[in-house]
Amino acid sequence: MGPAGVAGSQASRRAAQGRRRSGQAALVAIAEKVAAAPSGKEDPPPLDAFLAGLRTAWQGGEVRPTALPKAKQKRARRRPDPFAAVDSQLRDWFLAEPWRTSREFLDRLQSEHPGRYPDGQIRTLQQRLKIWRMEHAHALVFGSGNKLDAHADAPREHPREATGAAHGSILG
């Protein structure tokens, strides 16, 4: 590189340093303005005003930013219960053989009622058996008799249908 190239590169370095210095000076000036400015904090309200606000603060609900929103209610059944007609029969089968799977119960239903219960109903039956097994296990662990035997004729609602369903409950 010749003398003209060296002089040109030195000049560009000086210009870059000048820009950096002016940028640094601008940042220092901004920082000084912020430090000199008032903090913007307000004085806390008097104790009487604060306590008066507490009397009605609960009416507005949770005001903390970390609070979780209230859980929404689960929606009720949208379709009629496909197993309503055979609920007591299914319950009897379950009580007689609680180790059977929902697939075995559905196959048995399909053989007794051909064309009425398609394979797509397996999930509904699985949910029903899950509830019955939960109730059965609860009765075994905590005693108080078998809920399934004691209330076989009483209509019950699905846990997700606490508000009630328009088409009847899932368990009968």
Rank of each mutant, 00 (worst) to 15 (best):
M1N: 04
G2L: 03
V6G: 00
A7R: 15
A7P: 00
G8K: 12
S9Q: 10
Q10S: 14
A11G: 12
S12M: 14
R13A: 14
R13T: 10
R14V: 04
A15Y: 13
A16G: 08
Q17F: 13
Q17E: 13
R20D: 08
S22V: 15
G23D: 08
G23Y: 07
Q24D: 11
Q24K: 14
Q24S: 13
A25I: 07
V28I: 12
V28E: 12
I30M: 11
K33E: 15
V34K: 07
A35H: 05
A35W: 04
A35S: 09
P38G: 11
G40K: 06
E42G: 11
E42Q: 14
D43E: 14
D43N: 10
D43M: 13
D43G: 06
D43S: 14
P44H: 03
P45V: 15
P46E: 04
D48L: 09
D48F: 11
G53V: 09
G53I: 06
L54Y: 03
L54P: 06
R55M: 06
Q59E: 13
G60K: 09
G60A: 10
G60I: 00
E62P: 01
E62V: 07
R64E: 11
P65F: 08
A67C: 11
P69S: 09
K70E: 12
K70T: 15
K72P: 07
K72H: 12
Q73A: 15
Q73F: 07
R75N: 10
R75S: 14
R75G: 08
R77N: 08
P80Y: 06
D81R: 08
P82W: 02
A84Q: 03
A85M: 06
V86A: 02
S88N: 07
S88H: 08
Q89A: 05
W93Q: 05
F94H: 10
F94W: 13
L95N: 04
L95P: 00
L95H: 02
E97I: 01
W99L: 05
T101N: 08
S102K: 05
S102F: 03
F105Y: 12
L106G: 02
D107H: 04
R108V: 01
R108P: 00
L109D: 04
Q110F: 04
S111Y: 02
E112V: 05
H113M: 03
P114H: 08
G115S: 01
R116V: 14
P118L: 02
I122L: 15
I122S: 02
L125Y: 10
Q126L: 00
Q126D: 10
Q126F: 01
Q127H: 12
Q127Y: 05
I131W: 04
I131N: 03
R133M: 00
M134V: 00
M134K: 15
E135A: 11
A137T: 02
A137S: 02
L140G: 09
V141D: 11
V141C: 03
V141P: 00
V141S: 10
F142W: 09
G143D: 05
S144W: 05
S144G: 04
K147T: 13
L148H: 08
A150Q: 13
H151F: 15
A152I: 12
A152T: 07
A152P: 03
D153L: 14
D153H: 14
A154D: 12
P155V: 10
R156N: 03
R156D: 04
E157V: 06
H158N: 15
H158L: 06
R160V: 06
R160E: 12
A162I: 02
A165Y: 01
L171T: 11
